[in-house]
Design a protein around this nucleic acid. Structure first.
Length: 630
RNA sequence: GGGCCCGUAGCUCAGCAAGGAUAGAGCGGCGGCCUCCUAAGCCGCAGGUCGGGGGUUCGAGUCCCCCCGGGCCCGCCA
């Protein structure tokens, strides 16, 4: 309806010969009348035609062929707007049909695959709220792409070749005889923190004995003390660790030495198992796990290197390898575009000696001992991705890596690929109010803790209400806890820091996951009690303010899904779900369904079915479980 | 110092891509509603110089410039 209206208006404007166009998403509902949707055509054209806005709008409206606009009933020019009065009955019938079948907004199959890489947390300590935000956003975005018709591949990059994992492996090697107790990633988190503390203290002692150093040492000793309390056997076993040993392990692992391989794989694999346990509990799964180490062993790094070598922008300092961004910036338009600079900018900055303040002149891929940096394997990974048969890859990565992502895209471009193949879906960190987190100090609130706590709270509520039998309590509390946590992490625009309050997750009132779940449940429950649902009903009976608002709201779903995709904003779906739920609750309070007179009963049931369908789809898209009872 | 991001009600956030028709939610505060499809709900009241200042425009929370406040990045860490 909107797109045909905008199209026809644009055609009318073109007819007059003015170079102004409207986008279908600009079509907005009139505040005066329910069935009116308008575009502010007159104002835009008034000047160009030197006419009053009203006359300009009229001039365009006279050239519009109403028959080409879907659901059109009339065209009304008012206040410089061209308004379309829609044929409500036909429009409502179609919206409710599609909504009830859960087809509203669903895209046609595209025969094209898009990859989403998300989570990719270092396997050294348990998942915390920050990693949770990544996983939840990434998973939701993948669901949105799928809903819009693409084939989707969800990948997780296992970063097993970095210093952090080497520290963990080194720690583990000192306590070989111990077997993990409790949840495996939590246990390794302590091993990691312990190894880190021992290493840091040793390093600090070598530096000097100044006062501030002493303070830092005491800080690490606190960490050791805390670990000693919860896991004395770990603290006892890890007492001596050197940087040399860690680097040596990393080097041998990257070379693929068999015994070291076993150690690293045991460590990283175990932590990853802990991750997937938590993630799949939250309904988040992956199509493939890509191991950083295999990118090295299977020569993807070398392929990347030779392609970069061919480009002529590869530099070396001993064994350290880098991409010469400075020269690339001066010589290549594609690289400048990635960093948002013009040729003149580059020349000016260079003259002022400020170019490397804006873009680092060297992008290092390896250390001088020849081991691969994350940046190096990430470039290789990007190359690998281009050969997966996917047309694009979304990288769900924190905003703090924005520069690195640009450097990787620049490398991709130098290797001869379209840098737009990689899209950085950037999200901000999670700020846990009142708690300072540090993985290296084993100070964090884990996703597991959060889920369990929320679940307990829900159980209490369920018991108070005495509404459900015991066997359902477990399932309901789990799903509600997941809904609460995921909603809290996804409902904020990705570029904003989430202010995460413990109470907020346990808050089950409006503007929350449980609120939307509850509304869905209400709709579901009505339909259950109705028994049969009429296939045909008189939509003109849906004529109260709130009913019309509801149907039009359903009609907005497709554009919300599209926007969530185009703007990289899954939070728009959660926002929409909350609005729809809120509207539905108002309807619920004021409009009896089952006890309504015959015709009304059928029409309202049709409406409830539509709401249930779209609310269900919205929940699906943000990965929050639907509930039939709560 | 440079780059990017954020700043809307006491608090947490929508609205900004595509400028339009009276700035919206939730929480918190105050006051109401369960013989009726689930009260995890609903209704009402109070609460706003849209960080500040310029500019563009018939029209700016939305676009441009400057400033202020906060965050992140500027590693042979990831």
């Amino acid at each position: 309806m909107k797109s045909s209206f905008a199209e026809e208006v644009n055609r009318g404007i073109a007819d007059i010969g003015v170079d102004v166009r409207f986008n279908w998403l600009q079509v907005s509902p009139s505040p005066r009348e329910r069935d009116l949707f308008g575009l502010p055509v007159g104002f835009k054209l008034a000047k160009k035609l030197s006419m009053a806005p009203e006359d300009a709008a009229r001039a365009v409206s006279e050239r519009i062929d109403r028959s080409k606009i879907a659901y059109s009933d009339d065209i009304i020019v008012e206040d410089g707007y061209i308004n379309l009065k829609v044929d409500r009955v036909r429009l409502f019938r179609d919206i409710l049909k599609l909504a009830g079948e859960e087809m509203l907004g669903r895209g046609e199959t595209k025969h094209e695959t898009i990859m989403v890489e998300h989570t990719s947390v270092n396997p050294v300590h348990p998942l915390h709220v920050g990693s949770g935000r990544n996983a939840v956003i990434g998973d939701s975005f993948a669901r949105i792409l799928k809903f819009l018709g693409w084939n989707v591949r969800r990948h997780y990059l296992v970063n097993d070749c970095n210093l952090q994992v080497a520290i963990l492996a080194a720690g583990r090697s000192l306590i070989k005889d111990l077997s993990p107790t409790g949840k495996v990633d939590h246990w390794y988190g302590l091993v990691y923190a312990m190894a880190n503390a021992v290493l840091e203290i040793r390093k600090l002692r070598e530096e000097s004995s100044e006062e501030y150093i002493e303070e830092e040492i005491r800080d690490w000793e606190d960490t050791i003390e805390r670990i000693r309390k919860v896991a004395p056997e770990i603290a006892k076993g890890i007492t001596e660790l050197s940087e040399e040993k860690v680097m040596d392990l990393l080097k041998r692992y990257q070379k693929g030495e068999e015994d070291v391989k076993i150690l690293f794989r045991e460590v990283a694999g175990s932590v990853l198992r802990g991750f997937t346990e938590t993630l799949s509990r939250m309904g988040i799964t992956y199509d493939q796990f890509d191991w950083e180490s295999e990118l090295i062993w299977e020569s993807w790094v070398n392929k990347a290197l030779s392609k970069l070598e061919e480009s002529g922008y590869l530099g070396r300092e001993g064994n350290a390898i880098y991409v010469d961004l400075r020269r690339a910036l001066k010589e290549r338009e594609d690289i400048r575009n990635i960093f948002g600079l013009s040729y003149d900018d580059v020349i000016r900055l260079e003259r002022e000696g400020k170019l490397d303040e804006v873009v680092p002149s060297k992008f290092y891929l390896t250390r001088s001992d020849g081991t691969w940096l994350y940046t190096g394997t990430d470039v290789a990974y990007s190359l690998y991705k281009t050969e997966m048969g996917v047309s694009r890859c979304y990288n769900v990565i924190a905003t703090e890596q924005t520069l690195e992502q640009k450097e990787v895209r620049a490398s991709l471009s130098l290797m001869g690929y379209d840098p737009d193949f990689l899209v950085h879906l950037a999200y901000e960190m999670v700020n846990l109010i009142g708690i300072k987190m540090s993985g290296r100090r084993a100070k964090y609130i884990t996703l597991d803790d959060l889920l369990n706590e929320a679940k307990e709270k829900v159980k209490e509520i369920l018991k108070e209400r005495d509404l459900t039998s015991n066997d359902l309590i477990e399932e309901i509390s789990e799903k509600v806890a997941i809904g609460a946590l995921k909603y809290a992490l996804i409902s904020v625009s990705p570029t904003k820091v989430v202010q995460f309050r413990w109470e907020r997750v346990l808050d089950l009132e409006a503007n929350s996951g449980p609120f939307v779940q509850y509304s869905y449940t209400r709709a579901y429950s009505i339909l259950q009690k109705a028994g049969s649902i009429p296939r045909d009903f008189d939509v003109s009976l849906l004529n109260s303010e709130i009913e019309m608002a509801l149907v039009y709201k359903l009609g907005e779903f497709p554009e919300k899904v599209y926007s969530a995709y185009a703007l990289l904003r899954p939070d728009l779906i959660s926002q929409y779900a909350n609005d729809l739920a809120s509207l539905f609750n108002r309807f619920y309070e004021s409009h009896p369904v089952l006890s309504a007179p015959n015709g009304y009963r059928d029409a309202r049931l049709g409406l409830v079915l539509g709401v249930k369908g779209v609310l269900g789809l919205a929940l699906d898209l943000i990965g929050i479980p639907r509930l039939e009872k709560m």
